[in-house]
Amino acid sequence: MDTNQLEQNFDAKLARNESIEPKDWMPDNYRKHLIRQISQHAHSEIVGMLPEGNWITRAPSLRRKMVLLAKVQDEGGHGLYLYSAAETLNISREELIDQLLTGKAKYSSIFNYPSLTWADIGAIGWLVDGAAIMNQVMLQRTSYGPYARAMVRICKEESFHQRQGYEIMTVLAKGTAEQKAMAQDALNRWWWPSLMMFGPPDEKSPNTANAIKWKIKRETNDELRQKFVNQTFPQADIIGLKLPDPDLKWNESKGGFDFGTPNWEEFYNIIAGNGPCNKARISARTKAHNEGAWVREAANAYAEKKKAVLA
């Protein structure tokens, strides 16, 4: 079959909403786009363990401690599922990790903000996981089979993440005056970064057009962002917290909220490595990777010695 024919078959499959599987022919750019997107997603899960992981040892009750540990552990699992999905595209986990540690691959800019107080753990679960879930629910129908299947599993696990965060915020908002202030402060700091999680506005998003064409993404950045604002407003309202946006108001004609513009200059700077925690995050990952090297070597040496594999 010539490339034209293959390409036509591929397009026809997408048109029929059939999933693309690892051994199927796919355009080179589709493969590249997927590797970039899936690995970026995987790295985000792994780096995302850090800001929340900071608070596991300080969680204020045994229940919160267990929940947070289980939650952060889940994020590690998500990274693992996604690395595996990327590996079906003929790239190894070793290469993927190398790309993260050398700065060749990106991860979600949100994890370069610091988690300063316990309320941040509430805000992250509620807003960051909330925004992530919105994206992930869409990706359950993404065109690449292994990615879609990883997403189905992830979405199932995510179901408690947002709730535990919102529960933390609810308890704080109904708690002492200091606790309520802590909750509002965390919301103020995490709100705009959460809106940025959906990516730049559609007209400035270089990859959106292809992602939609290939049915990797099924909704645009702006569509998802709008949905998120609409769904979050009442959640904040009901627990007596205020979204920190003076331009926020209901727009009857579009059946949704109008809202202000995130600081995109800050967004691009964080992506460029200038966020408050970029260096700390990558150095934490690098340290874990380097300090674990002798362990992985030992496991490998033992396996070689014992020929345990298929002995």
């Binding site: 552990q73 699992g77 693992l80 599922y81 595996s84 590996e87 986990r93 990883a150 599993r153 696990e157 992985r296 496991a299 490998n300 033992y302 396996a303 014992k306 345990a308 594999v309 298929l310």
Partner: peptide, 23 residues
């Protein structure tokens, strides 16, 4: 249900248990 990494059979089995049977 998915994949795991492991350097040998026992580690692979344990890793599968730890990753895929937590719920």
């Amino acid at each position: 249900c998915g994949s795991v990494h492991g350097h040998d059979r026992e580690l692979a089995l344990q890793n599968a248990r730890d990753v895929y049977t937590r719920r």
